[in-house]
Amino acid sequence: MEDLRFQHRVRAPAGGTRQSAIVGVVASGNLEVLVERVLPDVECAVDIKTAAVGFGEVWTAVIGDFVERYSPGGLRFSINDGGARPDTVSLRLAQAVRLIAENGQ
């Protein structure tokens, strides 16, 4: 297992009012993303526990691209990864942002 942590300053806070959301499942080639609205509006953090060791550079690129595209201010992402491909990771992150951007609990 390898633990990775990314912190970004972002342009704007994420939309919606939900406090947390979860997508995905921890299985081979898949991952779960727990997203929580717990940070100041201009910050975003991503904590990753991954079964695939040695892919830090790929994660840096995928997370950097995701933060640039969605500006998920105020959100902390916690990821349990079962060795998902970068495109799967991007899709799950996008799903998580869309889900927490809904209104409600």
Partner: peptide, 22 residues
């Protein structure tokens, strides 16, 4: 006891296996 409470397995870490929040 939702996933945000992170009540994960205390055993999987020993086997170097990924946990799931629920």
């Amino acid at each position: 006891i939702g996933p945000e409470q992170r009540e994960v397995s205390p055993h999987l870490k020993i086997f170097d296996l990924p946990e799931q929040f629920d």
